[in-house]
Design a binder for these strands. Structure first.
Lengths: 356, 356
DNA sequence: GTGAAAGCGCTAACAC
DNA sequence: GTGTTAGCGCTTTCAC
């Protein structure tokens, strides 16, 4: 039975409002009184009940962070960065995992909505329409997806894909494949779009392969398809798949990069260990940026007359779109291809020139 | 400005308590009325405010899960299992990461305490005393540590260590090392205690080595120490360190298992990929068990007279200790040692016999 | 600088 | 089966 504000008030002969002020607006209370309140509070082990406070202020100082799969090593750095950034701003982050299921995703947003001030939605698998609906119920920041009208943080994977394809073509590869990711993934579409365009601009072929899951197992499962495609280089949707593929190709008697070059995307910790060439995405920066955007939503403001009449406005001040740069990290999973190494300008704008 | 229970009541000409009952005790309300309430609620987009509900019932239907390091692949399976188990019981799990810092750990427990019904503390780094104090403020279940008087879930790592040492001695190793984990770790102490005892019982030497961190980097950093120790086999505190060690030993020109055998503990997903011999610990089962124990705490009961006088009792009905079995998984990181392979009984009780 | 009082959204006796 | 009512613990006008 924890101590309440009333217990503290009684114990040091002061009114509850004074105790309340001691915690929420210390400068409004006489230093001497404040000291007395603080010490009795300490003595009674009093801690403000956040549910009660939330009820009246409309703010919980909690944030939600929803990811597709905690077990995917891509996410933990982002989660950690988000948590520490939130902590700097005196907020807490609640993490939840959707198991790559759009329905669970939606349910989690709804469940979290009433107990957080906002939610970071990472790599959502929901349809855009569903996200837009939810955004009306709770402040949302979307990571790894562009949703019109919502603040978003994305990696520049289009340029990442270009860097990867340029790298492979530069090594002398002309029959390439892209091993795709989840259907609902914006990132997947973006990579594919860019890879296709860049390959065409180089005049090389690019086969798009489907996959079963954005995991190692998914990479393993795709090995046979890759071999059958007869390509000499593969770009995978993410490192996890690339690593699975790496092992499975060897199992098929193919050498990497001798027979086939493999490039991943993300640069998860494991990738340097297995010497996977990859495109690094700044996940920690994305986590921090997302939290910052969430906290930049208008603070709740009370309107209406009389005490205890909070009307929380979720108007966002900025629906900024942050795009974070990616970096190619050449390692030993890529090597010379069967053709004369190509040479070309690696201009930043090359890919987007093609789009028009 | 979300709809409240009052809006719904007004909109379908019924009293708020009827609306409340429709959601918290549907069978107490006339099916016809219930239907009307439900549909207007749906129409207005009403969802019960959990903070308000928590305030009066004393229950949040949220659980906290605190882990040392989300980025350690050991934890995600446990987190996922806990989340899905909680979901079955209509609860949510908030995950938080302490970065292996005891102070952060304590702070997080306190911060979560008022917004969850209980907390699962995984692999705590705090002192037992601190945990006992916190347990008075919020229901706690401890995983990977035994704390007297608290419900705990532990892996039988003592037996796991015995399995590992037996395995190595059986292969003909007689100069062994244990590469230890974090100082605050109960598991670390337990493994060391058991490994030392079992080694003695076999009449082989076991050097205990300290480490900098329970991560791949920690394993890498320890390689030189391991080499200098002149042993032919190493048991590491966890797979992550074992894997780091594996790579670094090769870097030092040693072959595994030719020159040196390496055994890990945990069986994280990565371990099968690198063919690490390890002791599997049932982390998912631990997550489920911990959630079950938390939900087995006495439900809050209102005492005192009059409405709205919740007195939450945290008496736990059982302070059970669950011990989960471990399994040795021999792979290719262990091989024959320089001595005649030993043969001995692998009796389950052998190690504990030595303790007396 | 402090007290008084209203009320956030909801639940749970208690009446009828 | 439904309405009435009193508050959960807290914050915030408004007086003084």
């Amino acid at each position: 039975m924890p101590a309440t504000i009333r217990d503290v008030a009684r114990a040091c002969g002061v009114h509850v409002s004074t105790v309340s002020r001691t915690f929420s607006a210390p400068n409004l209370v006489n230093p001497e009184t404040r000291g007395r309140v603080l010490s009795t509070a300490e003595h009674l082990g009093y801690r403000p009940n956040r549910a009660a406070r939330a009820l009246i202020t409309g703010r919980t100082t909690n944030l939600g962070l929803i990811v597709a799969d905690i077990a995917n090593p891509y996410f933990p750095p982002m989660i950690k960065a988000a948590q520490s950034q939130a902590r700097l701003r005196d907020h807490h982050v609640f993490v939840a995992d959707t198991d790559e299921d759009p329905a669970v995703e939606e349910e989690l947003v709804r469940a979290l909505a009433t107990q957080v001030d906002g939610i970071v939605l990472c790599s959502p698998r929901m349809a855009n329409g569903a996200i837009e609906v939810l955004a009306r119920e709770v402040p949302l920041v979307v990571v790894n997806r562009v949703v019109a009208g919502l603040p978003t943080v994305v990696m520049d994977v289009a340029h990442g894909a270009k860097q990867a394809i340029d790298h492979l073509v530069g090594l002398g590869h002309r029959e390439l494949a892209y091993l795709g990711g989840p259907r609902g993934s914006w990132t997947n579409k973006e990579i594919r779009r860019s890879a296709v365009a860049v390959a065409r601009s180089h005049g090389v072929s690019l086969t798009v392969l489907d996959s079963v899951a954005p995991t190692e197992a998914g990479g393993v499962a795709a090995a046979e398809d890759v071999r059958r495609a007869g390509v000499t280089a593969v770009l995978a949707y993410n490192d996890l798949m690339a690593i699975g593929l790496l092992g499975a190709l060897k199992g098929l008697g193919l050498t990497v990069p001798g027979d086939i070059s493999v490039v991943g995307i993300d640069d998860i910790p494991l990738s340097s260990a297995v010497q996977l060439t990859t495109v690094a995405t700044p996940t920690a920066a994305a986590g921090r940026a997302a939290v910052d955007m969430l906290l930049r939503y208008d603070s709740p403001t009370r309107t209406g007359r009389g005490p205890g009449r909070p009307v929380v406005e979720h108007t966002i001040r900025t629906s900024a779109q942050t795009t974070l740069p990616t970096t190619l990290i050449p390692r030993q999973s890529t090597g010379p291809g069967p053709y004369e190494p190509a040479s070309f300008r690696d201009a930043r704008g090359a890919e987007s020139d093609l789009q028009s």
